[in-house]
């Protein structure tokens, strides 16, 4: 039976170690505060929080998909596509803004459902399915818009990026989504079933739960959150582009895994992902602060450094499980 795979895997299961990542984050924060000039300026700290928002939101969806034993590589293309839809169709009237927001959220959910339904009927590995659907969404995005551009009304940008000191609308939005989905995962039946799906689908089926429905729902959540992220990015950059989302597939997986989510599913938490996204965002900010943003060459170095730091931090507290 299928469970043979588990006998080996079971040995590696450990309790969720969310505490470790927050501790690590705190330690890095202290080190960075001491060593990097200007890092602790309130304006910069508020900036760090805002910078993490798009990654944080996508990573919530990615974590939920991964907890269910899946993976979503199409998030980047979905985000890009949404920025293009928003920047193409949004007009100045309130009605048009709300209409486009609703359209984007529906479209994102639809993309997620598409992934989930393909998975159900073709039973192909989610890595392949979402890689392919990612190409599909990316292609659609390019066909609508070859260059960066479009129009975003300034009122939409102003509302979506407003901030007052430490408090900002984007971070507030993230926090709200985090709390809602954290509750969903931790306290409700649906949340339990996502974990059970990632742990052992057979067990879930045998108690009479339709596991396909649960899986499709996780992808719909991921698609919906991609749409939110896409709208935010479109608002912040006042444009749409088929490139805007490219980094997010791998970064969201990194944030989830650094935060303790198992690639095999069933283990992890949103709180860990929160810390993971924060970590990535903090490194990004620090590297920008110490001068990695001024020319193209050093931008590449920045990626190299972030890559190394991610691997090291994963090794640091995940070595037992791997």
């Amino acid at each position: 039976m299928k469970n043979n795979k588990f006998t080996a895997k079971i040995k590696n299961y450990k309790k969720n170690s969310t505490g470790t990542i927050w501790l690590l984050l705190f330690a890095v924060f202290i080190i960075v505060s001491i060593t990097v000039q200007d890092f602790t300026r309130p304006a910069n700290l508020a900036n760090v929080l805002i910078q993490m928002v798009p990654l944080g939101i996508v990573a919530i969806g990615q974590t939920i998909v991964m907890l269910g034993g899946g993976i979503d590589l199409s998030v980047g293309a979905q985000i890009s596509f949404i920025t293009i839809i928003a920047s193409t169709f949004m007009g100045d009237s309130i009605l048009s803004i709300i209409g486009v927001i609703v359209l984007c959220l529906l479209l994102g959910s639809l993309f997620g459902a598409f992934n989930g339904i393909i998975l159900k009927y073709f039973s192909i590995h989610p890595l392949i399915v979402t890689l392919c659907s990612g190409f599909l969404f990316q292609g659609l995005a390019y066909s609508m818009h070859q260059t960066t551009g479009g129009y975003i009304p300034s009122i939409f940008r102003q509302i979506f990026t407003a901030s007052y000191g430490f408090f900002s609308v984007p971070f507030g939005l993230f926090l709200m989504l985090f709390l809602i989905f954290n509750y969903l995962l931790k306290e409700t039946k649906f949340g339990r079933y996502i974990y059970a799906l990632g742990g052992s689908e057979e067990v879930l089926i045998n108690v009479g739960i339709n596991s396909d429905t649960i899986r499709i729902k996780t992808y719909i959540i991921s698609g919906f959150l991609c749409a939110v992220t896409g709208l935010y990015i479109a608002a912040r950059l006042r444009s749409g582009s088929a490139h805007y989302g490219s980094d997010y597939a791998l970064l969201s997986i990194a944030a989830a895994v650094v935060g303790g989510t198992s690639m095999a599913g069933g283990l992890g938490s949103l709180s860990g992902t929160f810390a993971g996204a924060m970590m990535v965002s903090m490194f990004n900010n620090v590297l920008n602060n110490i001068g990695f943003k001024y020319n193209l060459q050093s931008a590449f170095y920045k990626d190299v450094i972030i890559g190394i730091i991610l691997v090291v931090s994963m090794f640091f507290y995940r070595k037992r499980e791997l």
Partner: peptide, 19 residues
């Protein structure tokens, strides 16, 4: 064969589907 979700607690496993 093991027929429990390894990543859930005993309690969660026992009440799975009947919460």
């Amino acid at each position: 064969e093991y027929n429990l979700a390894p990543n859930l607690t005993v309690l969660d496993n026992i009440i799975l589907g009947k919460e």
